[in-house]
Design a protein around this nucleic acid. Structure first.
Length: 287
DNA sequence: CACTGCTTTATTATTACGTCA
DNA sequence: ACTGACGTAATAATAAAGCAG
């Protein structure tokens, strides 16, 4: 199917650095995190060296609502804190959400009041929050909609909520989480890519170092035997300005650039440094 | 400048599932 | 084969911060 949204550009900036950015964990440190989870998050990319820098940019309780096991009847959770206040707020969407609640969730006024009292007085103790599990049909519809557009306007949200027999807030949350998951996957994929790039560069670096050592050694032995200019008269050597390779005088306008990659006279990417490599059987990476 | 409504980000809590004794 | 404990992944939901209008 090729889910293009997964690969959409989220404006994520990626860079390679030698050290981890201490700011990374600013938010994590701000909370008294569960140690295991904290470790889990860190471990995910800890194996990446050099460090990768990625930059893009609770516990409220619930009272289980009247739960239906029917098809599309699964509005099982009822938030009593911010989301609840939101859903019964003042906007158009919220007013409609109120209607939605009437239609889908059979919750008495007294239970709402007790929810709020509970929230204020008991500080999240007691009733465990129940979690809705979306049916396959609901998930499929949400996924289809997400493929069409990753965000919803209020009207679309209402319509989708009505269609799926969910509260608008639930649809909204689903889209929030879905976007977050998409971004996370993309980040992981880009991390993997960077890791591969890093390995390639390290390998290339090793190879170039080795090549340099060989050249140094060669230079030493050559100068010991005879002056360098005697072996290759400089008068006959010149650099081609277009491909930055050494060739004989008069040749540089005629020589075949395609074949030149196998020439022993290879030049590095730095224009100031000509590299003579008589034994090179593979082209320098600069070309 | 404050407000509002939205998104993103980080996190928690619940559920489903796999593994193992 | 069945079962219960345990670990873990997935994900719904919450909270807070940031941002645009």
């Amino acid at each position: 199917m090729g889910f293009d949204h997964e690969a959409c550009n989220t404006g994520l900036g990626l860079s390679l650095g030698c050290q981890g950015n201490p700011d990374h964990h600013t938010n994590l440190q701000a909370f008294d995190l569960d140690h295991q989870k904290k470790k889990k998050i860190q471990l995910k990319y800890d194996h990446l060296l050099p460090a990768l820098t990625l930059g893009p940019s609770s516990g409220a309780s619930k009272i289980e609502a009247a739960k239906s096991d029917d098809h599309f009847g699964a509005v099982s959770s009822f938030s009593n804190s911010s989301s609840f206040k939101r859903d019964r707020g003042l906007g158009v969407e919220e007013i409609e959400g109120e209607v939605e609640e009437e239609r889908v969730v059979n919750i008495t006024t007294s239970s709402r009041v007790s929810d709020e009292l509970y929230d204020q007085d008991q500080d999240h103790e007691g009733s465990p929050r129940k979690k809705l599990r979306l049916t396959k049909e609901q998930s499929a519809t949400l996924e289809d909609t997400f493929r069409e557009h990753t965000t919803l306007n209020p009207k679309q949200k209402q319509e989708l909520a009505r269609k799926l027999n969910l509260r608008p807030r639930q649809v909204e949350v689903w889209f929030q989480n879905r976007r977050a998951r998409t971004k996370l996957k993309q980040t992981e994929a880009e991390c993997e890519l960077l890791k591969q790039c890093c390995e390639t560069l390290k390998e290339e670096n090793r190879r170039l170092h080795k090549e340099l050592q060989e050249l140094k050694l060669m230079k030493q032995t050559a100068t010991a035997a005879a002056p360098f200019y005697m072996q290759f008269p400089t008068a006959t050597l010149t650099m081609c300005p277009s491909c930055e390779k050494i060739c004989n005088v008069g040749d540089h306008h005629n020589h075949n650039h395609n074949e030149s990659s196998t020439s022993p006279f290879l030049v590095g990417s730095n224009k100031n440094h000509l590299i003579f490599n008589p034994y090179s059987t593979h082209p320098s990476t600069a070309c």
